[in-house]
Design a protein around this nucleic acid. Sequence first.
DNA 1: CGAGGCCTTGACCCAGCTCAAATAAGGTGG
DNA 2: CCACCTTATTTGAGCTGGGTCAAGGCCTCG
Lengths: 245, 245
Amino acid sequence: MQAEVKTDTAGYLHTVLPFAALKTSVLSGIAEHAQVRTEKKGTLLFYPDAKNDKFYIVRSGWVKLFRETMGGDEAIIDILNAGHCFGEIGLSGVEPMPYGAQVIEDACIISLPRFLLADEIMRNSVFGLAVLQSMTRQRMRRDLEIEHRTVQTAPQRIGCFLLKFCAGRGEGEMTLHLPYEKAVIASRLGMTPETFSRALGQLKAAQGLTVRGGTVTIPSVRALADFSCIACSSSFPCKEPETLA
Amino acid sequence: MQAEVKTDTAGYLHTVLPFAALKTSVLSGIAEHAQVRTEKKGTLLFYPDAKNDKFYIVRSGWVKLFRETMGGDEAIIDILNAGHCFGEIGLSGVEPMPYGAQVIEDACIISLPRFLLADEIMRNSVFGLAVLQSMTRQRMRRDLEIEHRTVQTAPQRIGCFLLKFCAGRGEGEMTLHLPYEKAVIASRLGMTPETFSRALGQLKAAQGLTVRGGTVTIPSVRALADFSCIACSSSFPCKEPETLA
DNA sequence: CGAGGCCTTGACCCAGCTCAAATAAGGTGG
DNA sequence: CCACCTTATTTGAGCTGGGTCAAGGCCTCG
């Protein structure tokens, strides 16, 4: 049973970006040491600035990475779902981790001792390159994020957020379900829940969206893209699709 | 003469982070292919989204990385000076470069064909790790930037910006010279030149700063830190010092 | 059915933006 | 060294997007 889980983990890791580059045998060896946990919404995986020697992969659910200011404010750095990793920062010897991680929708989290990866990087430069790519992608997410927060209005940011879930699925009508609480989306987009609510209202008026609970119907993905992506350097579909589990 | 320049370049590279890990012989080989250019303020090194196969190191002066939205706005992603690199993103096969680079204060720029580095990464995993570290640092800069833009007010952001040049040089009075145009600093901090000017005014009133042209005197670095760093997760001295050339 | 956790709304405020104009600061040719 | 441009920077006035505080509404789950 235990063995089965581990094989399964190895198989899953093989589909995750930095690990795809590893030979099956090596991957199994790593999966040996993997810890797989199912966590409920709300669980704090680790505090900001806590000592931490693990590398994490989200298998399902959603996790937020955040920082807390001395004044008590929180800034959400990123929100990750299946297939995304975090903790890579520690691979460069950064200690402690400069952010905290919290499960925001029931999640399955795989964690690995970081030194395993560090060793493998030293042994296998192809893997090192893969990790570098992963880090590069993270960085580009940040660059885009900075741009968005600089030049987009609140309704545009929300539009862009919704569009990430539409990429590659047609340009006409589309219905989707918000992946996590609106308040968290708001914070993720750098605005308050109130502003989120009102901005969504504007989107309803301007774009004819329908919102019922967490279910949103977009009458025209194309039109929403025209509205949102004007204030962005990359045109729709945005370079960075996010998938609903 | 030419040879001399190259030796010199190799020697300089040795002080730059990802290259410090390389053996002198390897470094000389790489420096062979380096191109060293002195560029005037205003020179565009490359456009956003231009094809580009180089890796750059700033030897002196200042360079800004920026993006342009379809609506014509510009977002400054980062501003770099001596010892900083850019173009690493391309090492992960990202093509074209998602930003542009412009010299904003007369600069000396070293550039290398990217494949040289890619080859060296494959050959030498210690170097790969060093590049990974460099990328990690870039990413952390971004994370911090997102936090700053989320939770700091304009005067606090300016304060934080000034403090980067004070790190490790005492906590009392300090005089420094702004490294580049105020309008650029403003944009770097995600605000308009007008707001920058006014916010600096507030800092004068609240902190007793003196500003004459580009020269700023801070009566108490400590007090400024107390004022600025409340709204930040890292306390003074901020993790990310920036040095005046 | 009731309690608590989301989410939305209303009223009001304010930091930062825009537009427009007045001043400084450099740099140039004479 | 001066007059003249050109490019920064500052200032003023007015506007507004988004924040804050506080009061409901609404859904979910025990």
